[in-house]
Amino acid sequence: MATADDFKLIRDIHSTGGRRQVFGSREQKPFEDLVDLGWLKRSSVDSRATHYQITERGTSAAL
Rank of each mutant, 00 (worst) to 15 (best):
M1V: 13
M1R: 13
M1S: 12
A2Y: 06
T3W: 04
T3Q: 06
T3G: 06
T3Y: 05
A4D: 12
A4W: 11
A4V: 12
D5Y: 09
D5L: 11
D5H: 10
D5N: 11
D5G: 09
D5V: 07
D5W: 08
D5M: 11
D5Q: 12
D6N: 14
D6H: 12
D6E: 07
F7A: 03
F7M: 07
F7N: 03
K8G: 06
K8F: 09
K8N: 10
K8I: 12
K8Q: 11
K8C: 07
L9V: 03
L9Y: 03
L9E: 02
L9Q: 03
L9G: 02
L9T: 03
L9C: 04
I10P: 00
I10E: 01
I10D: 00
I10Y: 01
I10F: 02
I10N: 02
I10A: 02
I10S: 00
R11E: 05
R11V: 12
R11H: 07
R11N: 05
R11C: 09
R11Y: 10
R11Q: 10
R11L: 13
D12H: 09
D12C: 09
D12Y: 08
D12R: 08
I13E: 01
I13A: 00
I13V: 07
I13G: 00
H14N: 06
H14E: 06
H14P: 00
H14K: 05
S15F: 11
S15G: 09
S15A: 14
S15H: 11
S15R: 13
S15C: 08
S15K: 12
S15L: 13
T16S: 12
T16I: 06
T16Q: 11
T16L: 07
T16W: 06
G17H: 05
G17M: 05
G17C: 06
G17N: 07
G18I: 02
G18V: 02
G18A: 02
G18L: 02
G18Y: 02
G18K: 02
G18W: 02
R19A: 11
R19D: 07
R19E: 13
R19T: 14
R20Q: 05
R20A: 12
R20K: 08
R20P: 04
Q21M: 14
V22H: 03
V22T: 04
V22E: 03
V22P: 03
F23E: 12
F23M: 12
F23D: 08
F23G: 08
G24T: 08
G24C: 08
G24M: 07
G24A: 09
G24I: 07
S25E: 15
S25A: 13
S25D: 14
S25G: 10
R26E: 15
R26K: 14
R26D: 15
R26F: 14
R26V: 14
R26A: 15
R26H: 14
E27A: 14
E27Q: 12
E27N: 15
Q28C: 08
Q28P: 05
Q28T: 09
Q28N: 08
Q28E: 06
K29P: 04
K29M: 07
K29F: 04
K29G: 09
K29L: 06
P30G: 05
P30I: 07
F31Y: 15
F31I: 03
F31T: 02
F31G: 00
F31M: 05
E32V: 06
E32C: 06
E32Y: 05
D33S: 13
D33M: 14
D33C: 11
D33R: 15
D33N: 14
D33P: 05
D33F: 11
D33T: 14
L34T: 00
L34G: 01
L34H: 01
L34W: 00
L34E: 00
L34K: 00
V35T: 04
V35L: 05
V35W: 03
D36Q: 15
L37F: 06
L37P: 00
L37W: 03
L37G: 01
L37T: 02
G38W: 03
G38N: 04
G38L: 04
G38D: 04
G38S: 03
W39G: 01
W39F: 04
W39T: 00
W39C: 02
W39H: 00
W39L: 02
L40G: 00
L40A: 02
L40K: 00
K41S: 13
K41L: 13
K41W: 13
K41P: 01
R42D: 03
R42M: 08
R42H: 07
R42N: 04
R42Q: 07
S43F: 14
S43M: 15
S43A: 14
S43P: 04
S43V: 15
S43D: 14
S44N: 11
S44K: 14
S44H: 15
S44M: 13
S44I: 13
V45H: 11
V45S: 11
V45R: 09
V45L: 08
V45D: 08
V45M: 09
D46W: 03
D46L: 06
D46Y: 04
D46G: 10
D46P: 06
D46Q: 08
S47T: 11
S47C: 07
S47M: 10
S47K: 11
S47Y: 10
S47N: 12
R48W: 12
R48M: 14
R48I: 14
R48F: 14
R48D: 15
A49F: 12
A49V: 13
A49D: 06
A49P: 05
A49E: 10
T50Y: 09
T50P: 06
T50C: 08
T50W: 08
T50D: 03
H51Y: 14
H51M: 15
H51E: 15
H51R: 09
H51L: 15
H51K: 08
Y52C: 01
Y52A: 01
Y52F: 04
Q53P: 01
Q53Y: 11
Q53M: 12
Q53A: 10
I54L: 05
I54F: 01
I54W: 01
I54M: 06
I54V: 04
T55G: 01
T55M: 02
T55I: 02
T55L: 03
T55D: 02
T55C: 02
T55V: 02
T55H: 01
T55A: 02
T55N: 03
E56N: 08
E56D: 12
E56L: 10
E56P: 12
R57L: 15
R57K: 14
G58R: 00
G58D: 01
G58N: 00
G58A: 01
T59R: 11
T59C: 09
T59I: 15
T59N: 07
T59H: 07
S60L: 15
S60I: 15
S60T: 13
S60W: 13
S60G: 08
A61L: 04
A61M: 09
A61D: 02
A61C: 06
A61P: 01
A62M: 03
A62F: 03
L63M: 11
L63H: 08
L63T: 09
L63G: 05
L63I: 10
L63E: 08
